[in-house]
């Protein structure tokens, strides 16, 4: 990769392996993930529950708790290596240059402190500002993320706010230090659809207003289609397909991605049973030999059971981990 291209990358994850060392054995939750997030882009990471998308994201900030740990690989933010960096260095990034929004707005805020206090803590941890100034900035960010009566809400406790408002508080907390990268881990999963649309709109707006790159983790391809520029599809700890948003939907490569797309309910279509990918996500302790998806794949060939496919180039930055694309371009 040339130097120029490198400059456009904000975050570059190379061959990341994060494993959990349980008493039953080693669980390779993230097993050699390579992923790039360019500046000012929204990158989606999609997959079923337990495919390793959250663990990938949490590895960036080293928020992996025991018995998990990053085994190997590299995570570079603006060229600076994060794997193996000291905890103080990582702490300096958390909430400052890289911040996170979690899935559960109902439980992600501390119930015994006011939301204002919790958000201003994010400022005072990283910057030397007076209490008054921090408060003003919190109120400003509350207004920016669309919290009505921001001054009043500053003194509210989490239980006094609705789920949508709490998620706005979380977004405010994440944005208050103007991070370079926002990791949104299923930010709308716990919210109802109207709120979901508002939150997604807000995130898109923040991306254009603040120039923040966003890593959006979700299992919802509808959400991806709404906001993402580029998408990674993960399965059992590996990237299965990566493409820009148009290629992913128009020239879907991997059978797994096709399955995911077919599983979206289509309200307008004729009434029929909802498609689902047969079988279940494999137990990471006993991964199949060969391709991880082949036990569930309609197109599985002899080769798939024996060898693990690489990511094959299908052109236009579209990579597919499937033997169908061994010869590039259109499926063989």
């Amino acid at each position: 990769m040339s130097e120029q291209q490198n400059n456009a990358e904000l975050l570059k994850i190379t061959d990341l392996k994060t494993h959990f060392f349980t008493h039953k054995g080693v669980v390779p939750a993230v097993d050699g993930v390579t992923l790039e997030i360019p500046k000012r882009q929204i990158v989606g990471v999609v997959g079923e529950s337990g495919c390793g998308k959250s663990v990938t994201a949490m590895s960036i900030l080293q928020l992996i708790s025991r018995p998990g740990r990053i085994v190997s690989g590299s995570i570079r933010l603006d060229g600076k290596e994060l794997v193996g960096a000291g905890i103080d260095e990582i702490r300096e990034l958390r909430g400052n240059k890289i911040s996170v929004i979690f899935q559960e707005p109902m439980t992600s805020l501390n119930p015994v402190y006011t939301v204002g206090r919790q958000v201003s803590e994010a400022i005072t941890t990283h910057q030397q500002v007076s209490k008054q100034e921090a408060k003003q900035r919190v109120i400003d960010i509350f207004k920016a993320v669309g919290i009505p009566e921001a001054e009043k809400r500053f003194k509210a406790y989490p239980h006094q706010l609705s789920g949508g408002l709490r998620q706005r508080v979380m977004i405010g907390m994440a944005m208050v230090c103007r991070p370079q990268l926002l990791i949104a881990d299923e930010p709308t999963t716990a919210l109802d659809v109207t709120i979901e649309a508002q939150i997604l709109h807000l995130m898109k707006q923040l991306e254009s207003d603040f120039g923040t790159s966003i890593m959006l983790i979700t299992h919802n391809l509808g959400v991806v289609a709404e906001v993402c520029d580029y998408v990674y599809v993960m399965y059992a700890g590996k990237i299965m397909e990566q493409a820009n948003i148009f290629d992913l939907f128009d020239h879907t490569g991997h059978p797994y991605t096709k399955g995911l797309l077919q599983s979206i309910p289509k309200p307008m279509a004729e009434k029929q049973r909802l498609y689902n990918i047969k079988g279940m996500v494999p137990n990471l302790l006993r991964l199949p030999k060969g391709c991880r998806f082949c036990p569930r794949c309609e197109f599985a060939m002899q080769e798939c059971h024996e060898h693990e496919p690489e990511l094959y180039d299908a052109g236009n930055q579209h990579l597919v981990r499937c033997f169908l694309y061994k010869n590039g371009g259109e499926p063989a």
């Binding site: 900030l61 928020l63 702490r91 300096e92 990034l93 958390r94 909430g95 400052n96 911040s99 996170v100 979690f102 559960e104 439980t107 992600s108 805020l109 501390n110 119930p111 919790q118 803590e121 994010a122 941890t125 990283h126 979380m170 907390m173």
Partner: peptide, 14 residues
């Protein structure tokens, strides 16, 4: 084990 502890860590607190 609570989510808000993760939030606190993600803020960069000691």
């Amino acid at each position: 084990k609570n989510d808000f502890i993760r939030t606190a860590r993600a803020k960069g607190l000691r």
